[in-house]
Design a protein around this nucleic acid. Structure first.
Length: 263
DNA sequence: CGACACTCCTGATGGC
DNA sequence: TGCCATCAGGAGTGTC
Protein backbone atom coordinates (compact mmCIF):
# COMPACT_ATOMS: atom_id res chain seq x y z
CA UNK A 1 0.00 0.00 0.00
CA UNK A 2 1.65 3.16 -1.13
CA UNK A 3 2.21 5.56 1.75
CA UNK A 4 4.37 8.68 1.87
CA UNK A 5 7.72 6.91 1.25
CA UNK A 6 6.36 4.95 -1.69
CA UNK A 7 4.81 8.03 -3.31
CA UNK A 8 8.03 9.96 -2.70
CA UNK A 9 10.00 7.14 -4.35
CA UNK A 10 7.74 7.37 -7.38
CA UNK A 11 8.05 11.14 -7.47
CA UNK A 12 11.84 11.07 -7.35
CA UNK A 13 12.08 8.50 -10.12
CA UNK A 14 9.51 10.13 -12.33
CA UNK A 15 10.32 13.83 -11.95
CA UNK A 16 13.41 13.89 -14.20
CA UNK A 17 11.43 12.27 -17.01
CA UNK A 18 8.31 14.43 -16.87
CA UNK A 19 9.37 17.86 -15.68
CA UNK A 20 9.76 20.23 -18.58
CA UNK A 21 7.77 17.94 -20.84
CA UNK A 22 4.33 18.50 -22.24
CA UNK A 23 1.40 16.20 -21.47
CA UNK A 24 0.51 15.51 -25.08
CA UNK A 25 -2.39 13.31 -24.11
CA UNK A 26 -4.08 11.90 -21.07
CA UNK A 27 -6.18 8.89 -21.91
CA UNK A 28 -8.52 7.90 -19.10
CA UNK A 29 -9.76 4.37 -19.68
CA UNK A 30 -11.70 4.06 -16.42
CA UNK A 31 -14.17 6.84 -15.74
CA UNK A 32 -14.22 5.93 -12.06
CA UNK A 33 -10.66 7.26 -11.75
CA UNK A 34 -11.71 10.90 -11.95
CA UNK A 35 -15.38 10.67 -10.95
CA UNK A 36 -17.44 12.81 -10.74
CA UNK A 37 -15.57 14.74 -13.45
CA UNK A 38 -16.00 13.32 -16.94
CA UNK A 39 -12.76 11.86 -18.36
CA UNK A 40 -12.98 14.10 -21.43
CA UNK A 41 -13.28 17.17 -19.25
CA UNK A 42 -10.26 16.28 -17.11
CA UNK A 43 -8.17 15.34 -20.14
CA UNK A 44 -9.04 18.60 -21.86
CA UNK A 45 -7.87 20.58 -18.83
CA UNK A 46 -4.53 18.77 -18.76
CA UNK A 47 -3.59 18.07 -22.36
CA UNK A 48 -1.10 20.36 -24.01
CA UNK A 49 0.27 21.74 -20.79
CA UNK A 50 3.91 21.66 -19.71
CA UNK A 51 4.76 19.86 -16.46
CA UNK A 52 6.46 22.56 -14.41
CA UNK A 53 7.02 20.38 -11.38
CA UNK A 54 6.09 16.98 -10.00
CA UNK A 55 5.56 17.37 -6.27
CA UNK A 56 4.02 15.48 -3.40
CA UNK A 57 1.90 16.29 -0.40
CA UNK A 58 1.06 13.44 1.97
CA UNK A 59 0.20 10.54 -0.29
CA UNK A 60 -0.84 12.79 -3.19
CA UNK A 61 1.35 13.04 -6.25
CA UNK A 62 0.85 16.52 -7.68
CA UNK A 63 1.36 17.36 -11.33
CA UNK A 64 1.96 21.09 -11.38
CA UNK A 65 1.09 22.15 -14.91
CA UNK A 66 1.58 25.44 -16.65
CA UNK A 67 -1.28 27.86 -16.24
CA UNK A 68 -1.79 26.90 -12.58
CA UNK A 69 -3.55 23.66 -13.35
CA UNK A 70 -2.91 20.91 -10.82
CA UNK A 71 -3.59 17.20 -11.29
CA UNK A 72 -3.61 15.28 -8.01
CA UNK A 73 -3.12 11.54 -8.30
CA UNK A 74 -3.72 9.18 -5.38
CA UNK A 75 -2.70 5.52 -5.55
CA UNK A 76 -4.81 4.32 -2.62
CA UNK A 77 -4.41 0.57 -2.15
CA UNK A 78 -2.99 -0.94 -5.30
CA UNK A 79 -2.09 1.89 -7.65
CA UNK A 80 1.28 2.03 -9.42
CA UNK A 81 2.75 4.25 -12.10
CA UNK A 82 4.84 2.51 -14.72
CA UNK A 83 7.10 4.43 -17.08
CA UNK A 84 7.39 3.04 -20.61
CA UNK A 85 6.09 -0.42 -19.75
CA UNK A 86 6.30 -3.17 -22.33
CA UNK A 87 2.92 -3.31 -24.01
CA UNK A 88 -0.20 -2.54 -22.00
CA UNK A 89 -0.08 -3.86 -18.43
CA UNK A 90 -3.27 -5.46 -17.08
CA UNK A 91 -5.49 -3.07 -15.13
CA UNK A 92 -4.12 0.06 -16.79
CA UNK A 93 -6.60 2.83 -15.99
CA UNK A 94 -4.87 5.90 -17.43
CA UNK A 95 -2.18 6.64 -20.01
CA UNK A 96 -0.03 9.76 -20.10
CA UNK A 97 1.90 10.58 -23.24
CA UNK A 98 4.87 12.94 -22.75
CA UNK A 99 7.31 13.23 -25.63
CA UNK A 100 8.90 9.84 -26.15
CA UNK A 101 7.53 8.61 -22.82
CA UNK A 102 4.33 6.86 -21.97
CA UNK A 103 3.19 6.42 -18.41
CA UNK A 104 0.59 3.96 -17.14
CA UNK A 105 -1.52 4.27 -14.01
CA UNK A 106 -2.12 0.64 -13.14
CA UNK A 107 -4.59 -0.19 -10.40
CA UNK A 108 -6.19 -3.64 -9.99
CA UNK A 109 -8.64 -2.60 -7.29
CA UNK A 110 -9.60 0.69 -8.90
CA UNK A 111 -9.48 2.72 -5.68
CA UNK A 112 -6.97 5.16 -7.12
CA UNK A 113 -8.12 8.63 -8.09
CA UNK A 114 -7.22 11.63 -10.21
CA UNK A 115 -8.54 15.06 -9.24
CA UNK A 116 -8.16 18.52 -10.60
CA UNK A 117 -7.46 21.83 -8.89
CA UNK A 118 -7.66 24.99 -10.96
CA UNK A 119 -5.49 27.70 -9.48
CA UNK A 120 -3.23 27.76 -6.41
CA UNK A 121 -6.11 28.71 -4.12
CA UNK A 122 -8.11 25.69 -5.21
CA UNK A 123 -5.07 23.48 -4.67
CA UNK A 124 -4.47 24.90 -1.23
CA UNK A 125 -8.14 24.47 -0.30
CA UNK A 126 -8.14 20.89 -1.55
CA UNK A 127 -5.09 19.98 0.50
CA UNK A 128 -6.02 21.95 3.60
CA UNK A 129 -9.36 20.21 3.79
CA UNK A 130 -7.77 16.76 3.81
CA UNK A 131 -4.24 16.96 5.15
CA UNK A 132 -2.46 17.97 8.30
CA UNK A 133 1.22 18.95 8.51
CA UNK A 134 3.79 17.39 6.21
CA UNK A 135 5.98 15.13 8.38
CA UNK A 136 9.28 16.56 7.17
CA UNK A 137 8.21 20.17 7.54
CA UNK A 138 8.76 22.43 10.53
CA UNK A 139 5.01 22.45 11.05
CA UNK A 140 5.31 18.90 12.34
CA UNK A 141 7.39 18.88 15.49
CA UNK A 142 7.31 17.41 18.99
CA UNK A 143 5.42 20.37 20.41
CA UNK A 144 2.79 20.52 17.67
CA UNK A 145 2.24 16.76 17.86
CA UNK A 146 1.86 16.93 21.61
CA UNK A 147 -0.62 19.79 21.27
CA UNK A 148 -2.75 18.06 18.65
CA UNK A 149 -2.86 14.80 20.61
CA UNK A 150 -4.41 16.72 23.55
CA UNK A 151 -7.59 17.17 21.55
CA UNK A 152 -8.13 13.48 20.74
CA UNK A 153 -9.21 10.54 22.86
CA UNK A 154 -8.93 8.19 19.86
CA UNK A 155 -6.36 5.37 20.03
CA UNK A 156 -3.00 6.75 18.95
CA UNK A 157 -2.93 4.35 16.00
CA UNK A 158 -6.20 5.81 14.69
CA UNK A 159 -4.78 9.27 15.31
CA UNK A 160 -1.70 8.55 13.18
CA UNK A 161 -3.82 7.12 10.36
CA UNK A 162 -5.92 10.30 10.28
CA UNK A 163 -4.39 12.30 7.44
CA UNK A 164 -5.56 15.55 9.03
CA UNK A 165 -3.36 14.94 12.07
CA UNK A 166 -0.22 14.23 10.09
CA UNK A 167 -0.06 13.65 6.33
CA UNK A 168 1.26 10.51 4.70
CA UNK A 169 1.31 7.89 7.45
CA UNK A 170 -0.50 4.64 6.67
CA UNK A 171 -0.72 1.25 8.30
CA UNK A 172 2.89 0.21 7.77
CA UNK A 173 4.56 3.34 9.08
CA UNK A 174 2.07 3.77 11.94
CA UNK A 175 2.95 0.30 13.24
CA UNK A 176 6.67 0.82 12.82
CA UNK A 177 6.67 4.28 14.39
CA UNK A 178 4.62 3.21 17.42
CA UNK A 179 6.91 0.27 18.02
CA UNK A 180 10.00 2.43 17.74
CA UNK A 181 8.49 4.90 20.18
CA UNK A 182 7.42 2.17 22.58
CA UNK A 183 3.81 3.36 22.60
CA UNK A 184 0.86 0.97 22.66
CA UNK A 185 -1.35 1.41 19.56
CA UNK A 186 -4.54 1.50 21.62
CA UNK A 187 -3.37 4.16 24.04
CA UNK A 188 -5.65 7.20 23.82
CA UNK A 189 -3.80 9.99 22.04
CA UNK A 190 -4.42 12.49 24.83
CA UNK A 191 -2.89 10.14 27.37
CA UNK A 192 0.55 10.10 25.83
CA UNK A 193 3.08 11.90 27.97
CA UNK A 194 5.17 14.74 26.60
CA UNK A 195 8.11 12.38 26.52
CA UNK A 196 6.08 9.88 24.52
CA UNK A 197 4.87 12.40 21.95
CA UNK A 198 8.45 13.53 21.60
CA UNK A 199 9.57 9.93 21.02
CA UNK A 200 6.70 9.39 18.62
CA UNK A 201 7.49 12.48 16.61
CA UNK A 202 11.05 11.25 16.15
CA UNK A 203 9.86 7.74 15.37
CA UNK A 204 7.38 8.87 12.70
CA UNK A 205 10.03 10.93 10.94
CA UNK A 206 12.67 8.20 11.29
CA UNK A 207 10.36 5.45 10.02
CA UNK A 208 9.27 7.47 7.01
CA UNK A 209 12.88 8.42 6.25
CA UNK A 210 13.98 4.78 6.52
CA UNK A 211 11.16 3.90 4.12
CA UNK A 212 12.32 6.51 1.62
CA UNK A 213 15.94 5.40 1.96
CA UNK A 214 14.86 1.83 1.20
CA UNK A 215 12.90 3.08 -1.82
CA UNK A 216 9.61 2.07 -0.28
CA UNK A 217 8.07 -1.14 1.00
CA UNK A 218 6.79 -3.80 -1.35
CA UNK A 219 4.22 -6.07 0.24
CA UNK A 220 2.64 -7.23 -2.93
CA UNK A 221 1.87 -4.49 -5.39
CA UNK A 222 4.26 -1.61 -4.95
CA UNK A 223 6.76 -1.01 -7.72
CA UNK A 224 8.66 2.12 -8.65
CA UNK A 225 8.10 3.58 -12.13
CA UNK A 226 10.69 1.18 -13.56
CA UNK A 227 8.87 -1.82 -12.05
CA UNK A 228 11.46 -2.27 -9.29
CA UNK A 229 10.34 -3.33 -5.81
CA UNK A 230 11.22 -1.44 -2.62
CA UNK A 231 13.14 -3.09 0.20
CA UNK A 232 11.76 -1.54 3.37
CA UNK A 233 9.68 -4.66 4.03
CA UNK A 234 12.99 -6.38 4.90
CA UNK A 235 13.46 -3.91 7.75
CA UNK A 236 10.00 -4.14 9.29
CA UNK A 237 10.37 -4.42 13.06
CA UNK A 238 6.82 -5.56 13.76
CA UNK A 239 4.55 -4.92 10.79
CA UNK A 240 3.52 -8.26 9.21
CA UNK A 241 5.74 -10.06 11.70
CA UNK A 242 3.05 -11.81 13.71
CA UNK A 243 4.50 -14.75 15.65
CA UNK A 244 8.09 -13.71 15.04
CA UNK A 245 10.33 -12.70 17.95
CA UNK A 246 10.01 -9.11 19.09
CA UNK A 247 13.23 -7.21 18.28
CA UNK A 248 13.11 -5.68 21.76
CA UNK A 249 12.13 -8.50 24.12
CA UNK A 250 12.20 -11.66 22.02
CA UNK A 251 8.62 -12.70 22.74
CA UNK A 252 6.27 -13.41 19.85
CA UNK A 253 4.81 -10.38 18.11
CA UNK A 254 1.05 -10.35 18.56
CA UNK A 255 -1.44 -9.08 16.01
CA UNK A 256 -4.62 -7.33 16.96
CA UNK A 257 -6.99 -4.82 15.46
CA UNK A 258 -6.83 -1.10 16.04
CA UNK A 259 -8.77 1.52 14.14
CA UNK A 260 -10.16 -1.36 12.10
CA UNK A 261 -6.70 -2.24 10.81
CA UNK A 262 -4.40 -5.17 11.38
CA UNK A 263 -1.91 -3.95 13.96
C1' DC B 1 -15.78 13.92 19.55
C1' DG B 2 -15.51 8.96 18.42
C1' DA B 3 -17.02 4.25 17.36
C1' DC B 4 -18.82 1.82 13.91
C1' DA B 5 -20.92 0.44 9.54
C1' DC B 6 -20.92 0.87 4.84
C1' DT B 7 -19.01 1.86 0.17
C1' DC B 8 -15.78 1.32 -3.45
C1' DC B 9 -12.96 -3.18 -5.68
C1' DT B 10 -10.69 -7.57 -6.86
C1' DG B 11 -6.73 -10.79 -6.03
C1' DA B 12 -5.47 -13.85 -2.54
C1' DT B 13 -6.58 -17.13 0.81
C1' DG B 14 -8.75 -20.85 3.35
C1' DG B 15 -12.33 -24.25 4.07
C1' DC B 16 -14.60 -28.08 2.41
C1' DT C 1 -9.22 -29.96 -8.23
C1' DG C 2 -12.79 -26.68 -7.97
C1' DC C 3 -15.96 -23.75 -5.90
C1' DC C 4 -17.42 -20.36 -2.71
C1' DA C 5 -17.12 -17.27 1.22
C1' DT C 6 -14.18 -14.25 3.41
C1' DC C 7 -10.54 -10.96 3.92
C1' DA C 8 -7.49 -6.94 3.08
C1' DG C 9 -7.71 -1.73 3.48
C1' DG C 10 -7.36 4.38 2.26
C1' DA C 11 -10.58 7.51 2.37
C1' DG C 12 -15.12 9.34 2.30
C1' DT C 13 -19.76 9.44 4.13
C1' DG C 14 -23.36 8.78 7.33
C1' DT C 15 -25.49 7.25 11.82
C1' DC C 16 -25.80 7.12 16.61
Amino acid sequence: MPELPEVETIRRNLAPHVEGRRVESLEILDARWCRPIAPAELSAAVEGRMVERLSRRGKYLIWELEGDVFLLAHLRMTGTLLLDPAGAPPHTRVWWRLGEHRLAFVDPRRFGTGELALGPEALEAFLARRLGPEPFSEAFNAASLHASTRASRAPIKAFLLDQRKVAGVGNIYADEALFRAGVHPLRPANRLTRKQTEELHGAVVASLQAGIDAKGATIDDFRDPYGVQGSFQDQFLVHLREGEPCPACGRAVRKQRAAGRGT
